[in-house]
Computed example of a mutant assay.
Amino acid sequence: MTKRHVSLPADAKDVRRAFVSGVDERLSAAETPDELATAVTGTLADLRGERDAYEAWRDGDDVRPAAAARLATLDPRNASLESEYYAEKDEAAFARSKPLQWLWRQFDTTPLADNVDVALPFRRMLAGHLFAGVGEDVRLFKGITMTYGHNIELGDNAVVHDGVHLDDRGELVVGARASVSNGAHLYTHDHDVVDQTDVTNYRTEIGADARVTQGALVRAGVRVGENALVGSRSVVQGDVPAHHIAVGSPAESVRVKPGWEAVAAPLDAGGERRQAERRLDDAVPADAAVYDEFQRDRSPPGER
């Protein structure tokens, strides 16, 4: 789509640059996870206008319990995320990604998250600290969620729109100039159909120039090929070949993009399931203290 340039007043641009570069410097100077958490805490206290209240509470001033809970969770060390409970995660990598992900999520609850001229540069900067790899001119919109962040790679000019879930319990790669539309979910892990506590992680790939459109779901271990298109609300369970258009649940290739017929695979090549090739060897550490949150008897009736 052709777009037009939008220019904010010069003084507003200067304020935005100072804000984003200042946070970038804080994060870059942090050498340990604790230093990173401290940098995030200060940033969130400033973003919410609660620096004085936070420092007073930290130094021992009495406040109401609700205020104490709010001020305490400016510090990511006083908060937990769902992914923190995953037994197989890389603990060292998560120690650094957790404060950054906390900053990402909390930033999106502030008024600045709706100011595109501020929010896109901020998220692009933050992605440079959080993601495994991030290209130039990436655009990341509001409400994006992720599992860890540190297993995500985005190519140049990739765009991820509002409300997208980037599951990187395994590995997730989104290629250059690819587009992921509002409300889409990209998965890299799957659960056993009998024992849902048995999780397998995969590498999921969205090829360069591909589009995953509104509300679509891409299953773990799938590859959406270069320049392919996944239709709205589709559920992709098998590979989508390059230049194909796939729609439905489960998604099936219904046509090749006009003009690309000579280089595209035939339509019946779509839907091949190759997850086994992209399975990751993520084992739970032997010393991890694990538990079964469901405590179910999973034995079939005849085996009890």
Score class of each variant (00 low, 15 high):
T2G: 15
R17V: 15
F19G: 03
G22T: 08
R26H: 08
R26T: 10
P33C: 13
D34C: 02
E35F: 03
L36F: 10
A37W: 04
A37K: 05
A37L: 00
T43I: 12
R58E: 14
G60C: 04
D61Q: 10
A69R: 15
D75P: 02
L81R: 04
E84V: 09
Y85Q: 09
Y86F: 11
E91G: 05
A92M: 08
F94P: 03
K98G: 04
P99W: 03
W102L: 10
W104F: 15
W104V: 04
R105T: 15
F107G: 05
D108P: 00
T109C: 13
T109F: 08
T110M: 03
A113I: 07
D114V: 06
A119W: 04
P121N: 09
L130A: 07
L130E: 05
F131P: 01
G133H: 07
V134P: 00
D137V: 00
G155F: 04
G155H: 00
D156F: 02
D156S: 08
V159P: 01
V164L: 14
R169L: 05
E171S: 11
V173S: 04
V173H: 07
G175I: 11
A178M: 09
V180C: 10
N182H: 10
G183D: 06
A184Q: 02
H185F: 07
T188A: 10
D190W: 01
D192R: 00
T197P: 00
D198V: 09
T200D: 12
N201I: 03
E205F: 06
A208Y: 06
A208L: 12
V212H: 03
A216E: 11
L217A: 07
A220S: 11
G221A: 11
G221R: 02
R223V: 15
E226A: 06
V230Y: 02
V235N: 03
A246R: 01
V247P: 03
R255Y: 10
V256E: 05
W260I: 00
W260M: 14
E261A: 03
A265E: 14
P266Y: 10
R274I: 05
E277M: 03
R278M: 12
V284W: 10
P285W: 09
V290I: 15
D292R: 06
E293D: 11
R296T: 02
P300M: 13
P300T: 13
G302P: 00
